[in-house]
Design a protein around this nucleic acid. Structure first.
Length: 462
RNA sequence: GGCGCCUUGGCGGAGUAGUUACGCAGCGGUCUGCAAAACCGCGUACACGGGUGCAAAUCCCGUAGGUGCCUCCA
């Protein structure tokens, strides 16, 4: 299996340290607000990576974190903690905010049929591990203390700028310079922030350096190492994390251990809404709830994600989400054929060959649009050319395993419903159109649609 | 200001030198008792200007426009 690697800037073969086991760490959400459609694109893509690894017989060990403390409103380690800010906004404690939006996020994962990570880990549950890691960095001389916290000295880490191909000199005009003159370098980042003197934080802990809370970056390193070891196989996240968060993770992890932190880095590009990026300031974020309120299935969202490549900056709009919903219905109608024996059993496509091509496309840097085209070909012209219900029933779980669009959650119709279809055929043979239409309406009420074809009646769930 | 990326038909989106991608929408038609979310066909797309090639949407240079990061953000 091949995947683009941000570290090497090329498509690399995936070669885990201890095959068939493969370790994956995904940067999860900061739970201070609802997740929006852009977040979901990201996480569905990560889920697709896991599914494809499994299909390639890897034994996946997947960890996703929940950032519930320490993520400030500015990456320059200034501004408010997002959780504390959310708490103020809603008149709750930071703990309540974290709990509420964590639950909402996990619910969204279920709605989108995402696989469950082996571990979902919270930053606040791993304060001691983070403190320990900061201590290791301190012992090795990578830290310094200023009035508001313990900082990492990026200039001591050789190759700090390499991962993101940062031009540090060119950046000095940017906002990171002006803030906090105590920092030795604009790129230095907080490992531990001290609690303010004048106010009481909801979330704070004791540490060797004083009461406070961990910086955002250290949690991912500490938790990744705890659950997956000091070197992991694949680290994933949004493309925006390359210049700061992931650059810092590499710096602090490799400085502490002297080992490569992650061998493979996968980054999901951002999606655009109406040609613009999603941002708080543009107020153009879309929640999963808005999708379902419009009567669109979360599975259509999932299919829509797969219709573009994860490294391209794709467009989201409602028209095309509805297009995905229509396509999904066609796929479902095909899946329903696994229970129906048509008079002809000729296949439109050689499923064995198509499945190989399908899996190859998925395994080639997750070329989901190509894979979908192959799958789509398998579902076409069934009525004219016939369909082999046995072949379809064997194919459904394989496709579903990789795409996760709900193809498998479709049971056969009941015996009573089958009787109605048979009865309607009798009526039709007798040209009793009133009765046959009535029976068709009855089935429609039960969510079953019918198509009369040369192969006989075909049912599908509406 | 620094560092990138992109520009394909109504919308989205593959392809990356020689083959009508595909999906949805639209139009026309077929099948059907009617119906269909079924089938067939159509619109003959690749920002613009140069260059290299037998051949370029696909490679190179330039221009225009858009857009991302550096600053909240997946």
């Amino acid at each position: 299996m091949k995947l683009y690697n941000t570290l090497t800037k090329q498509i690399d073969e995936i070669e885990p340290l201890n095959p068939p086991q493969i370790t994956i760490y995904t940067c999860g959400p900061t739970v201070y607000d609802y997740a929006h459609i852009g977040h979901w694109f990201n996480y569905v893509r990560m889920d697709t990576l896991i599914r494809t690894l499994k299909a390639n017989d890897f034994n996946t060990k997947w960890v996703m974190n929940i950032t519930d403390v320490g993520h400030l409103t500015s990456d320059a380690d200034e501004g408010e903690d997002k959780l504390e800010k959310g708490a103020k906004r809603e008149g709750k404690t930071a703990w309540e905010i974290a709990d509420f939006y964590t639950k909402d996020f996990l619910d969204g994962m279920k709605q989108l049929n995402m696989l469950e990570p082996n571990h979902i880990v919270k930053a606040t549950d791993h304060i001691p591990e983070q403190v320990e890691l900061i201590k290791r960095l301190e012992e090795k001389g990578f830290t310094y203390i200023i009035s508001d916290g313990v900082y990492y000295e990026t200039s001591k880490f050789e190759g700090y700028a390499a991962f993101a191909q940062l031009d540090l000199d060119g950046q000095e005009a940017g906002a990171r310079l002006a803030i906090n003159p105590q920092k030795h370098s604009p790129t230095d980042f907080a490992l531990w922030k001290f609690s303010p003197q004048d106010s009481q934080r909801d979330m704070e802990w004791d540490s060797p350096w004083g009461k406070g809370f961990p910086g955002w970056h250290i949690e991912c390193s500490a938790m990744s190492m705890k659950y997956l070891g000091e070197t992991l196989d694949i680290h994933t996240g949004g493309i925006d994390h390359i210049p700061v968060h992931h650059t810092n993770e590499i710096a602090q992890s490799e400085a502490a251990t002297g080992k490569r932190f992650a061998n493979h880095w996968m980054h999901s590009n951002h999606i655009m809404v109406n040609g613009r990026k999603i941002s708080k300031s543009l107020d153009n974020s879309i929640r999963l709830k808005e999708v379902t309120d419009r009567g669109i299935s979360p599975m259509a969202v999932r299919l829509h994600v797969l219709e573009s490549h994860y490294r391209s900056q794709s467009m989201f709009n409602w028209e095309n989400l509805e297009a995905s919903q229509n396509t999904l219905k066609n796929f479902y109608a095909w899946a329903d054929l696994q229970f129906q024996s048509l008079s002809s059993q000729k296949l439109t496509t050689n499923y064995d060959e198509a499945l190989i091509a399908f899996k190859e496309a998925m395994s080639d840097d997750l070329k989901t649009p190509v894979a979908l085209t192959i799958f789509s070909d398998m579902t076409n012209r069934i009525e004219d050319l016939g369909a082999d219900s046995v072949a379809i029933s064997k194919t459904v779980p394989i496709i579903e395993g990789l795409l996760g669009i709900g193809l498998s959650d479709r049971p056969d119709i009941t015996g009573a419903q089958k009787s109605i279809i048979a009865e309607r055929e009798t009526s039709r043979a007798d040209k009793d159109w009133v009765k046959s239409d009535k029976l068709r309406d009855q089935l429609a009420k039960e969510g079953i649609g019918l198509r009369d074809t040369a192969q006989g009646p075909i049912w599908f769930r509406l």
